[in-house]
Each structure stands twice: as structure tokens, then as C-alpha cells.
């Protein structure tokens, strides 16, 4: 009886911890998926499925400790597969000329929004694998981790990252000149 109760309590505690883990990781995971697939509904479905598969194996993994990289790996692969399966449709609003600073002195908020939009467009123009590499790296994953997530060699990952950064630098040139960091 006591053993059952202890087990139940432990189980509830684990469940609460995993619930918190879902809540904490979900915004970043969803934002990342949206950035890769450019569609909120699709991103939600893909992320939902990735969580489902990980949580099914919650007894095999220490998700609280190692779950984040596993989650992002699953999302990366799901999004890349989805993107490659679908024809590469890029909305007209996503296709824009290289970012340019406005001539009139913008207010801070406007400039910030302009920058956000420019980054979004520049990322959207990257090939999905490059996008994944540069975003995972920006999210704090090491090159080794990113290579492992994408199941690529480190040298290939480095090349992808370099190309992505270069292209982004070119597209965001006006902003980088104004505010390098």
C-alpha cells in the first residue's frame, strides 16, 4: 500500500516536472519550427508530434536533463523533411530585396521592427538546412551538437553555417554597419 502510494506520488511528481518542461520549452520550440516551415499550423502539428514521440519514451530518457537537444533534433528533422516534401513555396511577402535602411531617421521602435522583419526575410531565404544550422547555433548549441542533430559531419555543418552566416551578413549589411552587435 505504502509502496503504491510512494509510486503514485513519484509518478505525479514526474508528471508535474515534465508538464513544466513542456511549458518551458514550447515557446522556443514553436518559434524555431515556425521559422523553419513558415506556417504556424504546420509548425504546431510538427512540434506536437515531436513532443508526443519524446514523451512516449519519457521512461527511457531523462527529458528534464537531456530533453531540449532531443526535442530540437526531432523538430529539425521533422521540419526539414516536411519542407523538402512540400514544394518550396515562399510567400511574396517573404521575398524582398536586400534590406535597406530608411533615409528618414526612424524612431527606435520602427527601426527595431524593420530589423526584425529583415532578419525574418533573410532567414526565410536560406535553404532549410542552412537555416536550421544557423538557428540552432544561435540558440546556443555547439557545432558538434548541431552536426549530431542534423546527422551531418562536423565539416559539412561548418560549411553550411559559414555559408548561411555569409548570406545573412550580406542581406543584413545595412543593419550590421549601423549596429555591428
Amino acid at each position: 500500500m505504502e509502496a503504491d502510494l510512494a509510486e503514485t506520488t513519484q509518478s505525479k511528481s514526474d508528471r508535474d516536472a515534465l508538464n513544466s518542461w513542456v511549458s518551458e520549452t514550447c515557446p522556443a520550440a514553436l518559434a524555431y519550427a515556425i521559422s523553419l516551415v513558415h506556417d504556424v499550423g504546420t509548425a504546431e502539428d510538427l512540434v506536437h508530434d515531436c513532443y508526443g514521440r519524446l514523451l512516449e519514451k519519457a521512461d527511457q530518457y531523462d527529458l528534464l536533463q537531456d530533453g531540449r537537444p532531443l526535442l530540437f533534433k526531432a523538430i529539425t528533422n521533422a521540419c526539414i523533411n516536411w519542407t523538402r516534401r512540400k514544394s518550396p513555396v515562399v510567400g511574396l511577402d517573404r521575398v524582398a530585396p536586400p534590406a535597406t535602411r530608411r533615409d528618414s531617421a526612424p524612431e527606435h521602435a520602427l527601426m527595431y521592427r524593420e530589423l526584425e522583419e529583415a532578419i525574418g526575410v533573410a532567414l526565410a531565404e536560406l535553404e532549410v538546412q542552412q537555416r536550421a544550422v544557423v538557428e540552432l547555433q544561435a540558440l546556443g548549441h555547439s557545432l558538434v551538437e548541431v552536426a549530431e542533430m542534423l546527422e551531418l559531419s562536423q565539416s559539412n555543418t561548418r560549411v553550411l553555417l559559414h555559408r548561411a552566416r555569409k548570406q545573412l551578413a550580406r542581406r543584413l549589411q545595412p543593419f550590421l554597419e549601423e549596429n555591428p552587435k
Partner: peptide, 12 residues
């Protein structure tokens, strides 16, 4: 390139 990383991280 480092500035690019910084911008992308802030964006995400």
C-alpha cells in the same frame, strides 16, 4: 559573422 549570430539569437 558574430554580429549575425547575435542578431539571429535575439530574433529567435
Amino acid at each position: 559573422l558574430e554580429a549575425v549570430d547575435h542578431l539571429v539569437a535575439r530574433y529567435l
